[in-house]
């Protein structure tokens, strides 16, 4: 089961069916863009990173061995592209944060504000863990860092979020890496 697109579409794309590859890109684009935007805190940079991720998917989908590997592969690509854009643009550690949409309530605005306060390393693990529901082992594989590093970053990030947001309530145990309930 893939979280980004229907498995049969991923399978067809793996076989280099041009139509399926383009359908797949259309399916993953919103998620790619929103993930990049959440990490980078800037729409233009996010568009750059997400589009480059889609180009890589278009070029290299045929090299993927199985549809099951697609999710992890795509997460790695997006995270690498956000890191590339950040390096190139010299985005400061503390981003301005996305402008809240008209539909955002005060709690949503608080979330953006809190994320903007986190350093890029903390923001990455926080977003992947709380928004994408990745396990800490999966985050470690995605970012190419040690599992212990992810747990440490999450623990520190949680402490900082608690400080920023005040009403922090979290059932995640960073020592065990158990799947969280994500309450803040």
């Amino acid at each position: 089961m893939t979280r980004w697109a229907p498995p049969e579409l991923v399978s067809s794309a793996l076989n280099r069916n041009e139509w399926a590859v383009e359908e797949l890109i259309a399916a993953i684009w919103p998620g790619c863009f929103r993930l990049a935007a959440t990490i980078l805190g800037d729409r233009d940079l996010a568009q750059d990173a997400a589009q480059e991720a889609c180009v890589i998917v278009h070029r290299k989908i045929g090299s993927l061995r199985s549809p099951e590997a697609f999710d992890a592969w795509l997460y790695r690509i997006i995270m690498r592209q956000t890191a590339r854009v950040r390096r190139r643009q010299r985005v400061s550690d503390r981003v301005a944060g996305l402008a809240p949409s008209a539909a955002d309530d005060s709690t949503a605005i608080d979330v953006w504000r809190a994320l903007a306060e986190l350093s890029p390393e903390f923001r990455e693990v926080t977003v992947l863990f709380y928004f994408d529901d990745l396990k800490t082992e999966e985050i470690a594989a995605t970012l190419g860092v040690r599992h212990a590093t992810v747990r440490t970053r999450l623990a520190r990030s949680r402490a900082k979020l608690r400080h920023i947001l005040g009403d922090y309530e979290d059932r995640f145990d960073p020592m065990t890496g158990e799947t969280p309930q994500h309450a803040v």
Binding site: F33, A108, V111, L161, D167, H182
Partner: peptide, 21 residues
């Protein structure tokens, strides 16, 4: 006021307008 960081964040992210590709 306690609120669910994950649920709120996911919902806020879903509201980010996506440009055309």
């Amino acid at each position: 006021m306690p609120y669910d960081f994950s649920v709120t964040g996911k919902a806020a992210r879903e509201r980010i307008p996506v440009p055309n590709l």
